[in-house]
Nucleic acid binder design. Structure first.
Lengths: 252, 252
DNA sequence: ACCTTTATGTTGGAAGTGCAATAAATCTGT
DNA sequence: ACAGATTTATTGCACTTCCAACATAAAGGT
């Protein structure tokens, strides 16, 4: 087994579980622990995993390699944002949730709060997180699998969503500016629009770092938004646009 | 600082980063490493984190305790079996793969071998594993999410599968006896049958520990099986039944 | 107050892990 | 085929972590 193969295997294992041990992989690959250690060293230098005593852990999905302190603060803000969004969901609601790191935190809080919901999503991770809660019913949409985002997209996804009608959709986004809500990942915008069409209320979860950014795909104009949930109030110019279009804004 | 408080802090830390160390938390909390160790033991028993040498990791969103445990059993046999099955797939093939621990190993080997395939599956984990391979195209079926198996089932799943026609399906099973192939998980049998209907060839991956077992749902009679892949040849009686129905058997 | 239960600290030995240096094996290009 | 480079195995040693047993301290109930 070549070095390259081992590296891929290690990363693959880390996709499946959060932590692997040196000794474990050594026997699995039939090599010395030292070799595995060296492999991990290489991968760590590439930022693909994090070493720990006796093994390695997966890097957090979508983690920026900033300072730890900054990362922590971002997480805190995101938790607040997601908490606000979760408080908008009531027992018995049906919702659609799209793929994204912010919506993932939202889903975790929803599961933790044991809100009784029926959720339709195109994100595998969100499905898994929310599915662990006994009080949630999860329906997964079909489609072409996008490994970078662990989500499905495409015509099938959008068609399938059209079969449901829900109380609200909770969508993330990569940008919010005068151009409206925009997204960068190919295929996501179409899914978001499909979700919006089937929802009585449309809630966008966008943290303040996305304010002022414009990405390639336009997801929605201000008029189409019902609610914006964020961790900080937008600047006056943006706030004016939002208010003019009747967008309710939630921010701590 | 009370025990409860520490527990919450530990879980909070694990939300921020994937791995924490015992010593680190001990100094942070101002307690002994033994205390932290005990805390982690408690939380591990509740399934809220995973211990590792020197620390603990967050439970992966898609990690399932029982699924992981099952994966640990009969590793060697299962790898051999899955390897045999993987050798039946050729570049350019289209396949359907159903949820199960054996088919998961099969999917991993398929990804590892970089076989150029288009795969349709109802298992989220298999989708994730195979989706990592650049040479595989993965299509996920919709349906109701089943947390224990990390898979979707139901009418939607079966309906969706009916839209495709593939070269072969690779199915696991919980039992193989005179009654035929049987399955225990509710909803799985219907999905397996739906996959069989859309496949030119039908390959069952069943390890020897399932021989002689009969579960509630009958998936297929011998006549409907094309291929049986296992880690050991079945006993004479079963082998005779299989041969009579023209089932090709692969075993090391 | 007393006793019981629970939680925490301390200790010593066993086991696991990391590191560095060296030797062996494998790969690579000419 | 050969020499040099890369990769892996081996070894010894220092260090960290684990575990279990015991001692101590705090909390809770009668």
């Amino acid at each position: 087994m070549k070095k390259r193969e081992r590296h891929e295997q290690i990363l693959l294992q880390l996709k499946l579980r959060p932590h692997v041990r040196v000794a474990e992989l050594a026997t699995l690959f039939g090599v010395t622990t030292e070799t595995v250690r060296r492999d991990m060293g290489d991968l760590e230098r590439q930022g693909l995993l994090e070493r720990a005593h006796g093994g390695a852990s997966a890097t957090h999905p979508g983690a920026h390699r900033d300072l730890d302190e900054r990362r922590q603060e971002r997480v805190v803000e995101r938790e607040r944002l997601a908490g606000l969004a979760a408080s908008l969901v009531r027992d018995g609601d049906t919702v659609m949730i799209d793929a994204g790191s912010t919506t993932m935190v939202f889903a975790r809080l929803l599961a933790f709060a044991e809100t009784r919901v029926t959720a339709i999503t195109n994100s595998l991770q969100i499905g898994m997180i929310l599915g662990q809660s006994a009080s949630a019913r999860v329906i997964l949409a079909p489609g072409n699998y996008l490994p970078q985002e662990a989500a499905v997209v495409g015509i099938d996804t959008c068609d399938y969503l059209a079969r449901y009608q829900v109380d609200a959709c909770f969508l993330g986004a990569a940008g919010l500016s005068e151009a409206g809500v925009t997204e960068a990942v190919e295929g996501f915008a179409a899914v978001k629009r499909a979700m919006m069409r089937q929802s009585a209320a449309c809630r966008f979860l966008i943290d303040a770092s996305k304010f002022g950014l414009t990405q390639l795909d336009v997801v929605a104009q201000f008029e189409e938004m019902d609610t914006l949930v964020s961790d900080r109030a937008p600047d006056p110019a943006l706030a004016a646009c939002l208010a003019e279009s009747g967008v309710r804004t939630f921010a701590p």
